[in-house]
Structure formats: structure tokens, C-alpha cells
């Protein structure tokens, strides 16, 4: 299964996600530089990695969201390709307008770096069909800007459409309605603050992130 990881200047989790994808799929992902105007052919997933692209200049994810490659990522998402944005990747996807709302400085201004309990809200494919709706999982977070904000109308719409994929089991960063992960309308674009790529083998202290990747690749390979 062919995958791609977008590489922005300053990102520091692109290798984490690349290793995770390689472990799960058995194939080394293509690392795609931010200045590329196109993506490789035949992809099953594009990952927008975590980690402070452009030093979080202007706003977290703001510069990366305007990089040439993001136009290709948006086009691929329109075509139905699964796109996964983790942490800074989630910030990039909101800044690019591929997901609604914005991620602001954590309430309390602390950088939060620890394991958090999360509730998987639904078993929606392609990302969550190997989890039980309402299942409690544990993943690590490491962010300064994870405080999800949108107007009430948007939040109500997201709830109604089943697009809140993951919630913090208890308040972590001030995020509206404890949103930790969000889907686009079609369900093929997922932004999440926690790091599933850091929980895919026993040595990580847990494997709660692994099923997310396995689910994506089963779905795509069966299609």
C-alpha cells in the first residue's frame, strides 16, 4: 500500500508517522516536499505530520497550509483519498480550510505533553471502523495549540453530522465540546491532536493507535 508523508520545514514528527506507516503497511512511504505541486500516483493515504512546521510562525499551521503541495492534497481529498492530519497536521488542515474551525493556544497556556484518555465517538470508515463506538482509548498528546474553537452553529452541525470523531474523556486544553479529532463532511479527511503513530507497538506502551491505520488500508485495498 502506497502512502505519502508531507514534509514541511520545521516539522519534527514526519519520521514518526513514516515509521508507523512502514510498520503497518510494509511499504516505505513517499516523503513529499512541501514545494511539490503534485502528489505521487496510486496513494492509499496522505499524512500531514505533527510538529511545528515553519516554527509556528504567524499561527500554527498557517504557513504550511499555503504551501504548493497543499493544493494537491486538497484536490486528492476532493477525490476521496484518505487524508490524516496529526497535531500540527490538524492545525494545517483547519488553516487550509479542509476542516472547519481553528486550533488556538491551550486554555491555561501550558504546553500539554502526556497520555490522555479519549472516546471514539463512532465507528465510521475509513479511520474508525476497527473501534467500537464509545470505546475508550489512550493516546499521547504533545501540543501548545490544541484548543479547538468554532462558533456554536458550526459545533452543532458537526455534532449532528457525526463528524466529531474523537473527544477527550476529560478537559485537556479548553477544546470546545472536548473535541480531539474531527472529520470532513465526506469522512475521508481526519484531523486529530493526539498521536496515533506513537501507539502502534507494545514497546510504545500501548497499541491503541494501530487499528486506525489498519482500518484505512483494509478499506482501500478491498476497494
Amino acid at each position: 500500500m502506497k502512502t505519502a508523508v508531507i514534509v514541511f520545514p520545521g516539522s519534527n514528527c514526519d519520521r514518526d508517522i513514516a515509521v508507523a506507516l512502514e510498520r503497518v503497511t510494509g511499504t516505505t512511504p513517499d516523503m513529499v516536499w512541501h514545494a511539490e505541486p503534485t502528489l505521487p500516483e496510486g496513494l492509499g493515504l496522505v499524512a500531514v505530520p505533527g510538529g511545528f512546521s515553519y516554527g509556528d510562525y504567524l499561527r500554527s499551521g498557517a504557513m504550511a497550509a499555503r504551501a504548493p503541495v497543499m493544493r494537491a492534497v486538497a484536490d486528492a481529498a476532493e477525490g476521496g483519498l484518505p487524508v490524516l492530519g496529526i497535531c500540527n497536521g490538524f492545525q494545517v488542515l483547519t488553516e487550509a480550510g479542509m476542516l472547519p474551525g481553528a486550533l488556538m493556544r491551550n486554555a491555561g497556556i501550558d504546553f500539554v505533553c502526556r497520555e490522555v484518555a479519549l472516546t471514539v465517538e463512532g465507528a465510521r470508515p475509513p479511520f474508525f471502523d476497527r473501534y467500537q463506538p464509545g470505546e475508550r482509548i489512550v493516546l499521547p498528546v504533545a501540543h501548545h495549540d490544541g484548543n479547538y474553537t468554532a462558533d456554536d452553529e458550526t459545533l452543532d452541525r458537526l455534532e449532528g453530522e457525526g463528524r466529531i470523531a474523537l473527544r477527550y474523556a476529560e478537559p485537556v486544553n479548553g477544546s470546545a465540546r472536548n473535541i480531539a479529532g474531527l472529520l470532513n463532511e465526506r469522512g475521508n479527511v481526519l484531523g486529530m491532536m493526539p498521536h496515533p503513530e506513537r501507539r502502534i507497538e507494545a514497546a510504545h506502551g500501548g497499541v491503541d493507535g494501530r487499528r486506525l491505520f489498519e482500518a484505512v488500508f483494509d478499506l482501500v485495498s478491498a476497494a
Partner: peptide
């Protein structure tokens, strides 16, 4: 609108 401000917030 395109870059300097995020008009969502």
C-alpha cells in the same frame, strides 16, 4: 483574508 488573519477567530 488569505494569510495574515484567520477570519474564523
Amino acid at each position: 483574508r488569505t494569510l495574515l488573519a484567520n477570519t474564523v477567530i
